[in-house]
Design a protein around this nucleic acid. Structure first.
Lengths: 338, 338
DNA sequence: ATGAAAGCGCTAACAG
DNA sequence: CTGTTAGCGCTTTCAT
């Protein structure tokens, strides 16, 4: 019965005004709780609006008010990665406090796509843009920087422009992981890391290597693996490491995906090597996995705060917030060398 | 040196046209790759646009083109729940194929908040609205339904209106979990479930109970627990169950949070009961947890597809897609009764 | 307390 | 191939 293939045009404020028998502007005032509206007039307008199923057209309002929306954009990796979704959740919660909405888009780890998503967001006139960049070169954003759209970088420092950023203490966390394993007596420690084109990965490697150097240990060097990018690759890499004649006695994985792979590789081992993973994860307690933890939701929240301050008119030099890390010992990182 | 506290107004098409020495409309044509523009003119316009740092104002365009944006809204629970983030990821990937962007908002499991988020989305003139509702009453959406904004319900059937939906075969999945445990010889099977106000939970309970009835087993009845809503509560509930004089020999948990709690409760048990969890999760293979799995990304993808078809003008009766489930046996569900 | 007119930045319709 | 005019739905002057 319902004729719903005809796109029914939504009623406009003009129609509401007409039905209520007032002028356009009066209807606007009434619906926006502005002063100087007689109570009876207000009621008439609201009734008319209800009757017609009127809903404010935010697009028209935004255009008139200055062509800037109530939207904040986030460009990040796939939300099925718990790291990104935790960050997104932190951002979203903070933005909501201020009546802002979050638009998300997945860069698929592709620099070109990332650029076009940024473009799309800027065309939509987002109030601020949060980016967990896949690419390392952010110079193309510099043009936009001083045009009133605040940028905030998450997890990766801006390169080629100056902008607010919220980072994790990657080097510090990785260093303490290294020290933790050295403290348990390990020397032959494998380092399984992701693509080195990502700055956080480089920092984690540097931190780990720093700890080894400081301890005068170089027995880890044959066990350095980089460019390991997904769970399966990580599983295979760890399997291969453990099959060596002189296998490592401990493994440090530099993100949650790699840790998952390592756990799969070690699943059926009676006497597994020690393991520490960067990034905490959901069932780490049940699995007894020692991790370098950090507050991912706080990372998002702080980034949203910085963005909001800029939106609210704060100007000044770019700020960087660093989220601290801590080792959570759950057993796997405390296993002694065999 | 940069004067960035003065909100620099972005250049408009008029300014680009002026600089290029052409009319507004010609500039518009050139920038939109429309036909009938002399190559040299096109180049002049593009150069002017680059010089000024011009960027199309999507808000103005949308207003002019019919007051409807390229945005699709998703209202769901917190994205830190892997279920929601997997769904969101599936949606986002599908929408991108069609140049649509996803706006997300977290209902915090609050019906009032959910309503106001839906309002906010509708004011932004989203092209479609996807909802994983926390509330069971969706009648308030009925008014909107035939006004041109397509609704798609995910994971929960619409109540009080007719709309497209993508559901999981909750009853079937739960029934097969029950049968699986019965098949392993269990009779005293605990059912740990979430708030019964959520339709999927009711369906899962029904499915499980159906399997028990069909087998003539009523030994599960003392072990029915409902209203268990977070991980800690689930952990305590399972602990309490296992501390009974006559404890259950198997546990069926009806979502990923509850499964996590159960795993925590069983962490240090030498001889844990059998366990099957509804919803697959990341490290289930490592933990050897048997689950009722289903494709969450597909759930999102299908919902986005339905929405897109409506956006593209498809009209017709509401459709429902059901995502099938399958048991993945990994050990925990195959443990025999003690 | 209310209204009339102008215009946000763009595209559609129609000329030339 | 290019330009002129009008208007999307709203808010912002400025009158009354």
């Amino acid at each position: 019965m319902p004729v719903d293939d005809v796109t029914v045009r939504r009623p406009t404020l003009t129609q509401v005004a007409a039905l209520a028998g007032v002028s356009l502007k009066t209807a606007s005032r009434a619906l926006n709780q502005e002063p100087n509206v007689a109570p009876s007039t207000g009621r008439r307008v609201r009734d008319a609006a209800d009757l017609l199923g009127y809903r404010l057209n935010g697009i028209a309002r935004e255009l008139r008010r200055g062509a800037t929306s109530a939207l904040v954009g986030l460009v990040s990796g796939d939300l099925t990665n718990p790291f990104y979704s935790a960050v997104a959740s932190g951002i979203e919660r903070e933005l909501r406090q201020h009546g802002l909405l979050l638009i998300t888009a997945n860069n698929d780890e592709d620099a070109m796509l990332e650029r076009s998503l940024v473009d799309a967001f800027l065309e939509r006139r987002v109030r601020a843009l949060l980016v967990i960049p896949s690419a390392d070169d952010h110079e193309y954003l510099a043009i936009e920087g001083n045009r009133g759209v605040p940028f905030v970088f998450l997890d990766r420092p801006p390169d080629g422009l100056s902008a607010d950023a919220v980072l994790i203490d990657n080097a510090g966390g990785a260093r303490s992981a290294g020290e933790h394993l050295l403290g348990a007596g390990h020397r032959r420690i494998a380092l399984v890391s992701d693509l080195v084109r990502m700055a956080p990965q480089r920092a984690r490697i540097d931190g780990f290597v720093g700890a080894m150097r400081a301890a005068g240990n170089d027995a880890w060097e044959p066990f350095l693996r980089t460019g390991v990018h997904d769970v399966r690759q990580a599983e295979r890499t760890v399997r291969d490491l453990l099959a060596l004649d002189q296998p490592p006695t401990a493994v440090f994985t530099t993100n949650n995906r790699l840790t998952t792979g390592a756990l799969r590789a070690m699943r059926e081992l009676a006497d597994p090597p020690a393991l520490i993973g960067f990034d905490d994860f959901d069932l780490a307690d049940v699995l007894g996995t020692t991790v370098v933890a950090h507050d991912m939701t706080a990372l998002g929240r702080e980034a949203a705060r910085l963005a909001y301050e800029r939106i609210s008119g704060h100007s000044g030099p770019a700020r960087t917030i660093v989220i601290s890390t801590s080792i959570i010992a759950r057993g796997s990182g405390e296993r002694p060398p065999r």
